[in-house]
Design a binder for these strands. Sequence first.
DNA 1: CGGCCATCAGCAATCGATTGCTCCATCGAT
DNA 2: ATCGATGGAGCAATCGATTGCTGATGGCCG
Lengths: 343, 343
Amino acid sequence: MAGRVTLRDVAREAGVHTSTASRALNPATRSVVNPETVEKVLAVARRLGYRPHPLARGLRTNQTMTIGMVIPDIENPIFGPLVAGAESVFGAGGYSVLITNVDRGGNVKPLVATLLERRVDGLVLATALREDEVVSELRAQDIPTVLVNRTTDEYLVPSIVVDDQAGIGLVVRHLVGLGHRRIGHVAGPRHLSTGWGRYQGFFGWMQSLGLDVSPEQVEEAEWFQVEPGYRAAQRLLERLPDLTAIVAGNDLIGLGCYRAIREFGKEVGRDVSVTGYNDIALLDLMQPPMTSVRVPFRRMGEEAAKLLLGLLSGERSDTETISVRLQPILSVRSSTAPPPDDA
Amino acid sequence: MAGRVTLRDVAREAGVHTSTASRALNPATRSVVNPETVEKVLAVARRLGYRPHPLARGLRTNQTMTIGMVIPDIENPIFGPLVAGAESVFGAGGYSVLITNVDRGGNVKPLVATLLERRVDGLVLATALREDEVVSELRAQDIPTVLVNRTTDEYLVPSIVVDDQAGIGLVVRHLVGLGHRRIGHVAGPRHLSTGWGRYQGFFGWMQSLGLDVSPEQVEEAEWFQVEPGYRAAQRLLERLPDLTAIVAGNDLIGLGCYRAIREFGKEVGRDVSVTGYNDIALLDLMQPPMTSVRVPFRRMGEEAAKLLLGLLSGERSDTETISVRLQPILSVRSSTAPPPDDA
DNA sequence: CGGCCATCAGCAATCGATTGCTCCATCGAT
DNA sequence: ATCGATGGAGCAATCGATTGCTGATGGCCG
């Protein structure tokens, strides 16, 4: 029965008062106790296998050593590594992670409320919208919060995101380098920073590379999924049948593009190149393997955890602007190739 | 500031003692309080937005309303739905889920110890080995525990698994029905109930369908991953080049088989049929789309949560044998076809 | 009219740890 | 020798809710 031993037991056994035992056990207050007494208490605690009761401690100190994490659509494979990374860093810091999943269309607010009722010490949200009421409130209430993967337009709380400008730059330059000129974009939802940032990046890079680009070269998928990507790609190809390349908002949308391209009687990688984003697992096993922008999700989770730990320890104030933009790299595969000669 | 209001505040405002307020608020003890008083307290609590402090309550009642969940290799896509399913049921029951990931080869014991120190009310483990010391200890300590996806050989605690016997039956009968006779098996690790059960099922079904089957038709992948699956498939095909079908231990192993088959100059689905297991996302987009056994992971998570909730409420005793075997169904795709004529 | 019981609410202990304050003893300085 | 400073340890309050027990009130029955 681990944990049956209370501080009282330790104190009695060591022949000191509980308060003394408490101070001896706590590294921060240890200095006010006689070193010999400290030794004695420590020895007894070890022998008895004493473990402080987290609830009792938390009640008094008003800390739960618990982090709340909200994940949208946990079935999306990008979130596994993200959670794993965060969890490992939090675990090393003595924190545990309460996880909550919110399916697409679900309401984040009550979930966050539940987490706060549980008195989590901080939050990691992977659910931010570009304009996010929940985040604003958390900011207003001074609840240590870190955003991950997505962020808000206005800086409210720290975030760890990937540099979409850079990521899209990688694919656009890659495509242009291959000789593509007529490039389209099947964007993700533009009310999310990821969809928006990539969309912006697409425009920016096309222009800066001196290529014509207009809004009609873009279609928006309602969601970062295969099916919506497929439908958006259909619309795009119908309007602009002579595109030689499509930059997809993420890998799943890219897979939707594959399907649409085939339905138009063309071959992916030969007639029309496609790029994805995120570089999820198994992408290299698709037909053809998809060129994508590799996003370090595990690292993203780790950085988010470190950042939040920093906020919690008071080392960093969340009023100072801190945002981390991770740099992606390009995974080139055979879904991208020079445009066909007759193009 | 949700939660700043304490029971004391409510009691004072309602003009009653805290104990009365407490009883009025708790449905179980409400009957002992005058209905009018109850109304009054309830009204005040609502007005003030009172939320009980979970730590204070937990300290007294010795319950944290928290469940610990241990996931192996959280990056594996099967665990997303499983976690989501469990989390939604637990959430509805007022429980929160502390999640812990253990990477392959990691040690589960200290993670469980941490969770127990946190005083979780129960555990869901997706990490069971066929002989599992940790599970035995939990059983011995009477800690409400449920296993999910994998189970132990000896019945120790309740589990929710898929019926591997039935699942393998689906694929073997499917293959035999297509005309295959020389069928091999690339098994998953046999120290896990999933690897073992499918291996057993393969033998059983082959025999019961009157086909020759010997251990040399089987190779074991060290892990449920593409790469180990590939290596095992290589070994198998080298030994038995005339196989017309391979039953893979799971989808990822199946994808490894794809690669090995191609390296042997054959075509998947035409020369050699392949079946997977689990039916993970994107499998339908592989080349060729893989026939697989669909396992309802979300449901598995839900059932696990329900079962554990049952144990916790005392409705069910964990001494009575309870195990749920979910029934899988077959997703037929084009990785399976009749054997080639010359075979 | 007295006594008994049921109903309801308050008192106070309790869960286990933390921490401000007090108290005592010792030591050094004047 | 006296006083103050200092180190070290104990006392008790506290965090917020739950709950066994006690006590008061009022109704009913004999």
